[in-house]
Nucleic acid binder design. Sequence first.
DNA 1: ATGGTTGAGAATCAA
Length: 267
Amino acid sequence: MRICTWNINSVRIHVSHVERLLEEQQPDILCLQEIKVVNELFPEGLGHALGYRHQLIHGQKAYHGVAILSRLPFAQSGTRHWCGKEDARHAWVSVKGGDGKKIELHNFYVPAGGDIPDPEANEKFAHKLQFLDEMADWFAARRKKSSRFVLVGDLNVAPLENDVWSHKQLLKIVSHTPVETDALARVYGSHGWVDALRHFVLPEEKLYSWWSYRARDWEKSDRGRRLDHIWVTPALTSALASAQVLKDVRGWQRPSDHAPVIVELNL
DNA sequence: ATGGTTGAGAATCAA
């Protein structure tokens, strides 16, 4: 089973990119974040011709919004609101693996948190920290040894030193501050999660999934951050076959600033 | 220290 996650930064202007990705990568399931559109205006039939006939859209006007496109039918599905807000930042489905057992897939778009890394001075940063705390509590409360969960999405935190181009220079930059990486570590510990990308890529190696639009040459300056993640619960670690950042996609014409991340599970 | 770009949707706000 191949599962892909991608912050698409507006699904409507990147329709052809989504189709190209589905065609080239043939994921069974594609999770999108920042679709930036209400459900009614989501591009009709996106992926249908390629066999993605099951979809869960949780949209919002102009901001945020998540969606799941799938070749596999959903046994269950749902959406959830966080921090007492109406933001569309989480959608989940369960699907049957080839072994007949269900997996539960959670697609998240964690708040970016604004520019000032101080919850007192910046309510967006406070929201981000609260969101991560609620995620940790929620997954801790549902913890079971037998859980077969996959958590994907733009978590807007680069947790490891080599998840950013300069650990030292980003310690006070939102996405890599200690208070955020600590909060993400609590989510990570809440269900015994395993980081699928770092399962295959040594922590000593630089690894990014996002490069700012503001660089003159994103590839040459290579000042990236790993904001997009795929985690699995311990019951699925033995099924991990591969995981990678599809960096080439960041070089497509007028792309999203995020590259997709894909995992392959032997299920 | 600063400014650099993109998207939504109509002046800025968010990232």
